[in-house]
């Protein structure tokens, strides 16, 4: 039995410890906001936060998160998260929307660690999040806007 705090709630997972966290979240906890895109840590659609760090849940086992804190898109909170999600909505970043949970999770991590990123910083941190619809121009703009909004923290 693996014990993990997910979105502030203590959960017990009675699954194969080798199971990718992604499938445990989606299939066993019905937290479907975290998406399956490639299964090989190549696209970022499954990005969650583990103890505050961005992580690719397809490449992390349930065993890896025993005793840790996991946050998914459904559970993000705080001024940076609000600024990011708000900017995403203000600028209508989304198209199909499938990758956007992962994009937002990466963007929150980026702004938490680097409150005023340059375009190059954004590229460096977001290059692992693929958007097939090509919403990158707006992702970039939304991160800049989110940085401004969350500016009190900078």
């Amino acid at each position: 039995m693996i014990s993990v705090e997910i979105n502030g709630e203590q959960r017990e997972l009675d699954v194969d410890p080798q199971m990718p966290l992604l499938w445990a979240l989606r299939d066993h906890l019905d937290l479907t906001g975290t998406k399956f895109g490639c299964g090989r840590a190549l696209c970022g659609a499954c990005t969650v936060h583990i103890d505050g760090e961005a992580a690719r849940s397809c490449s992390i086992t349930v065993g890896d998160v025993d005793g840790k804190k996991v946050t998914t898109i459904e559970g993000v909170s705080g001024p940076v998260a609000e600024a990011v999600v708000g900017a995403w909505r203000d600028l209508d970043v989304v198209q199909c929307g499938y990758c956007q949970s992962g994009q937002i999770m990466s963007a929150i991590t980026l702004l938490t660690k680097n409150p005023s990123p340059t375009d190059a910083d954004i590229d460096s941190s977001m290059v692992g999040n693929i958007c097939r619809c090509g919403t990158y121009q707006r992702i970039r703009a939304a991160i800049h806007q989110g940085a401004k909004k969350a500016g009190g923290e900078a």
């Binding site: 840590a41 990005t47 760090e53 961005a54 992580a55 690719r56 490449s59 992390i60 086992t61 890896d64 990466s106 963007a107 991590t109 980026l110 938490t112 660690k113 680097n114 990123p117 910083d121 460096s124 941190s125 977001m126 290059v127 692992g128």
Partner: peptide
């Protein structure tokens, strides 16, 4: 920031 080795490599 959001592209750490440990994001994928455990």
């Amino acid at each position: 920031a959001a592209m750490r080795c440990s994001n994928c490599h455990k």
